[in-house]
Design a protein around this nucleic acid. Structure first.
Lengths: 190, 190
DNA sequence: GACTAATTAGGACGACTGTATTATTTTATT
DNA sequence: AATAAAATAATACAGTCGTCCTAATTAGTC
């Protein structure tokens, strides 16, 4: 029984993840991924029987990555405010990628929504996980029933920043808006 | 000299406009457009020699549509605040389309950025026109050098609302965020 | 009505796509 | 070392894509 294939499988998912982010899902072919990994298309098909299947694997990988990131922040910081600021700082820490390719979650959801792809709901879970985590932090800060709404608001703010700074290829706008968002958070949540 | 072809040309652009919005640019083929218009692919190619060419025509059409809309509001309302509110209200007046297909400008820019398409800058002009118009209104409201930044901020807010409400298929979130945005405008610009 | 230009239709071309099947090589187990 | 399983490669297939070419039809002009 060869467990060697598992390593290659992960390499394939990692390549697909990057390519989907940089070129989009539909615009990335089996050949693109196979070439990037350095294997043949036939071998590729041994590990993933369809394109939907690898998209599913990519979404799962991204999802667990997001969850691991959030868990890390939860254990690393005790102040909910610090945690939320850390979340906002994703925009600046990934600014170059966002300028070039937008938000990996938002752009994928936008694409899947247009192609009426059945996996849109799975992709949206990448948002839901963040929303729920932010909601917990906001409730710890004293917010009540409106915590979830504010969490959604934070997601939307980040999305807008990513989309616009990507379209305009404008890094200074991204930084300026991040500052504005933190400022709003300070005023809104005391 | 037959000027009859001009009418068909506009029908083609109108169909392409809708299809690009609902399915995305790359995911819409010549056959899709031709079938929607009710003509043959050969005839189609007579009016547009390449796919880039029709994309250019669609962007131009959308651009003049946006400019006409803004001009109308400029002449229809004297209060800059009313004008800006009218702009924000695009989100609610087009809410069903936005829920289903996102923002026509933002989603196109996102797609063109991913495919590294040369026409991304032309598409971004659909944003610039709105930004400049909003800047004028904000300056009339008394804002100075920061007017342009606030205008960009408004665009980003609208983009975030469109992207998130599209991904979540959540109309109530859209309406709620529009209300929040107007509220922010009232507090920010006295 | 004849003639020319504008317009439409139809089909052919090579390239690429996702999918599928088969053959070959490598790995693991006995 | 022999054998079975896993993994990799190579290729074929039907479909679609953007593009291009050619024939047929329509419309406008003298």
């Amino acid at each position: 029984m060869g467990h060697k294939g598992e390593a290659l499988r992960q390499r394939i998912v990692a390549s697909a993840d990057q390519l989907f982010y940089r070129q989009g899902y539909e615009n990335t072919s089996f050949s693109d991924i196979a070439e990037d990994v350095g294997i043949s298309r036939g071998n590729f098909y041994y590990h993933f029987k369809s394109k939907d299947e690898i998209l599913c694997a990519v979404i799962d990988t991204r999802l667990t990555g997001i969850e691991r990131m959030l868990d890390e922040w939860t254990s690393q910081y005790t102040d909910p405010m610090q945690r939320i600021v850390k979340h906002i700082d994703i925009l600046t820490s990934h600014q170059d990628d966002i300028i070039s390719h937008g938000c990996p979650v938002g752009s994928l959801c936008t694409e899947l929504a247009k192609s009426h792809h059945s996996m849109l709901q799975d992709a949206t879970k990448m948002f839901s996980v963040q929303r729920d985590w932010l909601t917990v932090q906001l409730k710890e800060l004293g917010l009540g029933k409106e915590a979830k709404q504010v969490a959604m608001h934070l997601l939307a703010r980040a999305q807008g920043i990513a989309t616009i700074s990507n379209a305009f290829d404008d890094k200074s706008f991204l930084r300026q808006e991040v500052k504005r968002l933190k400022q709003w958070l300070d005023e809104r949540v005391y």
